[in-house]
């Protein structure tokens, strides 16, 4: 995008704060709970909630990974929203996990068996575990304390995103297109970060 366009876009964004994102973030889960009691979530409402929260988390992970490429290619910066995007993604992954544990599997012994034996569960859980330190350190104090290490620590979002994408690809029956597109989107956004593909920031 030429500077004549990215300039105005950035100017419009400048006064828009990030905090409303945290309020908006409550809407999708609230909509699901509302739908549950309205009987709007179809024949299998628990799966609908579980899948919706997983998808929302993937969308936000992809959005977070897209911030840097958009800034470098288009010159438009959503940088100040990235922490909120990441934290909300984590919040949705946590809900996704809780729905699975409490409403779907229900039986503790089977949860344990799934955790140790099922590859897609292991991948998903690994992604969640990798994201815990990121969520915990997504605050101004941690950023100051950790200094350069904060950036290094937050590179963990890269493997977590790949694990999340793989989790989706291998949980479906057969080879299905949609989860593969999600994984390709994640891999594409990561490939942008390779030293020989990414353009220098201006």
């Amino acid at each position: 995008m030429p500077a004549s366009l990215s300039g105005p876009v950035n100017r419009v964004l400048r006064p828009v704060p990030a905090w409303p994102l945290y309020i908006l973030a409550v809407l999708p889960p609230a909509w699901l709970v509302w739908g549950l009691f309205q009987g709007r979530l179809g024949v299998d409402p628990v799966k609908t909630m579980e899948h919706q929260m997983g998808l929302w988390a993937l969308w936000l992970i992809i959005a977070g990974l897209a911030v840097t490429p958009i800034r470098r290619i288009l010159g438009v910066s959503f940088l100040k929203y990235r922490r909120a995007i990441g934290l909300v993604a984590f919040f949705y992954i946590l809900l996704h996990l809780l729905i699975w544990l409490v409403l779907d599997v229900q039986i503790p012994a089977q949860i344990l068996a799934d955790l140790t034996k099922r590859p897609y569960i292991i991948l998903g859980m690994a992604a969640f575990v990798l994201l815990i330190p990121l969520a915990v350190t997504s605050n101004a104090v941690s950023i100051r304390r950790l200094g350069r290490n904060w950036r290094r620590l937050h590179l963990l979002v890269y493997p977590a995103a790949v694990l999340g994408g793989l989790h989706y690809v291998i949980l479906v029956k057969g080879i299905q297109m949609t989860p593969i597109l999600y994984l390709l989107a994640i891999l594409g956004l990561l490939a942008f970060r390779l030293p020989w593909t990414g353009r220098r920031p201006r």
Binding site: I107, Q110, K117, R118
Partner: peptide
């Protein structure tokens, strides 16, 4: 990829 020991009763 998953257990068949139990089933969710739709």
């Amino acid at each position: 990829r998953w257990s068949q020991a139990t089933e969710r009763v739709i």
